[in-house]
Design a protein around this nucleic acid. Structure first.
Lengths: 410, 410
DNA sequence: GACTTTATTTTAGCGCCTAAAGTAAAACGA
DNA sequence: TCGTTTTACTTTAGGCGCTAAAATAAAGTC
C-alpha cells in the first residue's frame, strides 16, 4: 500500500506540485511556489526532475494571455498520458471499468453485466484480472505507466487490510481482493466505499471548496452516506462508519432490508417508498421489492403532480430523512449536507417535511450554520472520484522507478 | 494560538521526545530514539538542548535497575517544575481552578462558588484574571514558566476564534474569553469542551491505548459525549459535534431541557429519571427539576434493590440510551464506547436494556468489533485532561524564549 | 586485566531548503 | 531604437537537521 507518508520534504513538495497542477490546471513556477509555500528555486528543481520523467511538460508560449510587463510566465502542465489508473465500480450484477489519465479525466469506460451474487471470490478475481489485463495491454501504447487500481464497492470495506468485509453485491465475505490484484499487477490497489468516491468527486468541485466538513447523502434503493472531515472520508475503526441508512428513525418501526426495524432506509429507500405505494396506487408492474428506474419515475411523477397518497408517502419519508439529518447535524456538525443519488428526483416532494423535521428536532444552536442542499445525480461520479483518489494517493517516487511500468508477463 | 504545526523537523522531534517522556516516564536516549524513529545522535542533540533549558534532567544513576551488561542507560526525565499550566473548569455556579506541572500532575486545586449565570462577560473575565494572577504570583517561586491556560467549559465552544458560543453556565453568548485571557497573560489559551477534556484524560490511560477511535459518553444532569478520532477530539465545523444528548430517540417523544421532544437526554438525564420517578415513588424532597446527588443516589438505590417502578424507569432510559449508542455505532463505528459520568452509578440498572436495544437496532456487521464498557467517575478528570491538552499543545520553542516567563507587570 | 556488550557522543557527509545574486524575456518610454 | 523597468526563472552559496559510522564511555564477564 504505497500511500505516500510525509517522508522526505522533497517528496511532499513534489506531490504538492502535482496535486496543484491537477486541481488548478497549468501554472507557472512562481505560482506553484506561492500556492504551496515553496521557494521558486525549489520549484525549479522539482519541475526539472518532473520534466525529465516526462510527467509534466511546458506549455508553448503564446497559448495563454499574459498581459502585463516582465518576462512572461512559462506554464507547466501535467502530461495526461504519463500515467493511467483504473477504477472498477462493483455493483449488484454490474461491473463498470473506467480508465483515467494523469489529470483525472475519464478516457475509457466499459460496462459489464455479471451475476455478481453468484460468483466465488476466485471467479470475481479472475474476471477483474482478465478485464484489466485486456485494457492495459491495449493502453500500453498510449500511456507510459500504470499507477494504480481503485475498487469502488458498495458495502463495508476495511481500509487496513484491504478486504471487502461485506457487500450487498457479493455472496462471500472478508475477501482480500485488493492484495490479490496488487500482486498480479504490481501496483497499489485502493479499496473504497462507493459513497466515499462520490463524495470525493463532489468535494473536488470548486463550488464546494468552502465546505471542508461535508456530508453527502445518496438516496436510492438504499441510503448511502459519506462524511468528509477536512475533505477526507471518515471511515471509522473498521470501515463501517457513516451508515445513515441503518441509523434509527423510530424504535420498532418499519421493517428494513437489513432485517431490523425503524431504520431510515426503511422509510426513504426506493423499495420502502414503493412498498407503501403499491398497495394504494396503480403503478407499473414489476418486482415491487426492487423497483426499476421506470417504476420509481412513475411514483415520483405522481407525487410531483400532487397526488395526495403519493405526497403523503414522500412526506413521511421526508420526515424520517429529516430526523436522520438532524442526528447527523447533532453528531457531526457539518458545514454542508448535500443530498444526491438517483433518489434526489423525489426530493422536491419531501423537502418541506425534511426541513420541518430538522426544525422540530433541533434547537438553532445545533443546526448552527449547517446548510442542506441537493445536487443532480450522475452515475459516473463514482468512478471519477475513484480515479481522483487513486491519483491523489499516487507517489511520484514510485512513478519514476521502472518497476511501475507494465509487467503483466510474470 | 501557538499550536505547534509540523514546521521544522527538529521542532517535531523535540516535541515527540517531550511527549514520550511525559506519557512513558523517564527514558534513556536510545529508547527515546527507538520509540520515535530518531537516530540516537539526534536524540543527543535534542536532549542537550533541553538540558540547557532546564526542561529535563538526567536521573542520577543507581536509581533504577539496569540488569544486563554494557554501559548503563542514563535516564532522562522531565523537570516537573520547569513549566506550569492552569486549567479552569467552568460549570454552573462553580469554577474550579487547577495548576498542573510539566509532567501533567495536579499540584494545586481550588474551588470557587460563583453565580455564573448572573455574570457579565466582563465580570467573568475579571474574576478569572484575578484568580489566575493571584495563583501565578504565588507559583512564581516554584516554577520557571507559565505555559498556558485551558478553559474547560460545558457547552459549545468554537475552536477557530476561541469563543464560547453557548454554555449552560453563562447568560451571554459568543464570548471571546480566550483571546482576552491570552492578551492579559501573554500565553496560549486553549478553549475546550469539558467532555473532550475528560475523554482525552481517559484516552491517555494505558488501558485504552488500543482504542484510537473512542467514544466517551458522560451521564449526568444532561448527556455529554466526546468522540476521539485517532485520539483527537472531533469537534465538527463549529464545535457543536458529538451532541448525543440531543440526538433523537423518538420523534415527538419526551420533553427535553432544550425545548424539543424526543432527545436522548429527555429519557436518560438525571432530571428525566427523577421527573418520572417523583410522581410514583417516595423520594427525598428537593428541587426535582435539578435533583441533587443525594436525590439521585436514593433513586438509584431503589432501582438497584429491585423496586419494580424504579427498575422500569431505568429500563426505559436504558432503551433510549441503547438506541442512541446504536446510532453512534452506525455513524462513527468506534472501537470502544465508554460510559462514565456521575450517572454511571445507575448504569447497572439499565445495562441489559442498553444491550438489548443495541441488538434490536443493528445487525451484527454494524456492531462489528465495537465494545461497550463503563468507567468509574472522577470529578477531577476534566482538569487533568485540560492540563494534558495544554501541555500537549505547548511548543517547546516558545518555552525557551524569555517572553514566556511570567510578566504580569504590564 | 583483557574482552564483550551496550550507551552516548563526535564526526563527516548528505539532502533539501532558502536568500540572494545572476540571467532571460518581455513591455515601456523617450 | 535602445536603455529602463518589471517580472520570471536559474544558479550559487550557505544553513539546518538528519544519519551512519567511528570514537569514547561505562559497565559486566571470564
Amino acid at each position: 500500500m504505497a500511500i505516500p507518508s510525509s517522508e522526505s520534504s522533497r517528496q511532499d513538495n513534489t506531490l504538492a506540485v502535482i496535486r496543484a497542477l491537477r486541481s488548478q490546471g497549468p501554472m507557472a513556477r512562481v505560482d506553484l511556489g506561492a500556492s504551496n509555500d515553496i521557494s521558486s528555486a525549489t520549484v525549479t528543481a522539482i519541475t526539472t526532475e518532473l520534466l525529465g520523467q516526462a510527467l509534466v511538460s511546458e506549455l508553448p508560449p503564446g497559448m495563454h494571455r499574459d498581459n502585463g510587463r516582465g518576462r512572461p510566465k512559462t506554464l507547466i502542465q501535467l502530461n495526461p498520458d504519463a500515467v493511467f489508473v483504473v477504477c472498477v465500480k462493483l455493483s449488484i450484477n454490474e461491473v463498470q471499468i473506467v480508465v483515467g489519465d494523469f489529470v483525472g479525466q475519464v478516457r475509457h469506460s466499459e460496462l459489464h453485466s455479471l451475476a455478481t451474487l453468484a460468483l466465488t471470490q476466485e471467479e470475481l478475481c479472475a474476471f477483474l484480472v482478465d478485464k484489466i489485463e485486456a485494457l492495459s495491454s491495449q493502453l500500453r501504447d498510449t500511456y507510459s505507466r500504470f499507477a494504480g487500481i481503485c475498487l469502488a464497492v458498495q458495502g463495508i470495506v476495511s481500509p487496513h487490510n484491504g478486504t471487502i468485509i461485506w457487500s450487498p453485491a457479493l455472496r462471500f465475505r472478508n475477501a482480500p481482493i485488493s492484495s490479490r490484484l496488487a500482486a498480479v499487477f504490481g501496483c497499489p490497489v485502493l479499496l473504497e466505499n462507493d459513497a466515499n468516491c462520490i463524495a470525493r468527486s463532489l468535494a473536488s468541485q470548486p463550488e464546494y471548496a468552502a465546505y471542508p466538513h461535508m456530508v453527502v447523502i445518496m438516496l436510492g434503493y438504499g441510503i448511502g452516506m459519506s462524511v468528509l472531515i477536512d475533505g477526507q472520508p471518515f471511515i471509522g475503526a473498521n470501515g463501517s462508519a457513516a451508515e445513515l441508512g441503518h441509523s434509527k428513525y423510530e424504535p420498532g418501526g418499519a421493517l428494513c432490508s437489513c432485517g431490523r426495524r425503524g431504520c431510515i432506509e426503511a422509510y426513504v429507500g426506493d423499495y420502502a417508498l414503493y412498498r407503501e405505494a403499491r398497495t394504494m396506487l396503480s403503478l407499473p408492474a414489476g418486482d415491487s421489492a426492487h423497483p426499476s428506474e421506470e417504476q420509481m419515475q412513475a411514483l415520483t411523477q405522481l407525487a410531483m403532480r400532487g397526488d395526495p397518497v403519493a405526497r403523503q408517502i414522500f412526506g413521511k419519508a421526508g420526515r424520517a430523512l429529516g430526523y436522520g439529518i438532524a442526528n447527523v447535524m447533532a453528531l457531526f456538525n457539518p458545514d454542508l449536507v448535500l443530498i444526491t443519488g438517483a433518489g434526489v428526483r423525489g426530493y422536491p416532494a419531501m423537502r418541506s417535511e425534511v426541513e420541518q423535521a430538522i426544525d422540530d428536532a433541533l434547537v438553532e444552536e445545533l443546526i448552527g450554520l449547517t446548510r442542506v442542499a441537493t445536487c443532480p445525480w450522475d452515475r459516473d461520479m463514482t468512478c471519477l472520484g475513484g480515479i481522483a483518489m487513486t491519483l491523489h494517493a499516487t507517489d511520484p517516487a514510485t512513478l519514476s522507478a521502472p518497476s511501475s511500468l507494465l509487467r503483466l508477463q510474470d
